[in-house]
Amino acid sequence: MRIRIEALGIDMGIEAVGLGDSGGMGLPKNPAIAAWYKFGPAPASAAGATVIAAHVDSLEYDIGPFSRLASAPAGTEIVLSLADGSERRYSVASVTLTLKPDVPWPTIFDRTGPARLTLVTCGGEFDYTARRYLSNVIVSATPVP
C-alpha cells in the first residue's frame, strides 16, 4: 500500500502494524514509512476509520513527510494505492492538534460508522526531558466517490 498527498509532497509506502511495546500503535522507526493499524478497518472496509500514522521525526532519520500534515488545508486530496492495484481517494475534512491525554482514542480507532481515513502523527510542544511530543496531529478525511 502507498499513500500519496500531492499537495504536500507526500508519497510513502505503508506497512501493516499492530501494537508497540507500551500498548500504543507500533510505528516503524523511519518517519518516511507510514503504518496502517491492521486490527482496525482496512481501506477497503465498508465501515469504520482506517488509521494510518507515521513518526513526525526521528533522531536517526530526521524530519518525516507527515510533519507537513499540520498545514494541510481542508479539501486536500489523499490517495491510497491498495495492494490489488486499486486506488481510494479521500478529501481532508479537518486537521486538529490535540493534547495526547485528550485524544478520543475510541473515536480514532472506531471500527463502526461511515468509512473514513484518519491520519495521525505527533506535533505541538515537545517535552525535552521525556523526549515526547505533547500532542497528536489528527487529520480526518472522507472518501471521495
Partner: peptide, 27 residues
C-alpha cells in the same frame, strides 16, 4: 484500542523549540 500513537522522538518540529535551535537540538 491502542493507548496512544507515539509518533515523534526528536522535537524537530516542536512549537516550543528554542528560537536559535539547530536541526538536531535534543534535550
Amino acid at each position: 484500542d491502542p493507548n496512544g500513537i507515539p509518533a515523534g522522538e526528536a522535537g524537530l518540529v516542536a512549537t516550543n523549540r528554542p528560537a536559535d535551535q539547530t536541526p538536531l537540538w535534543v534535550g
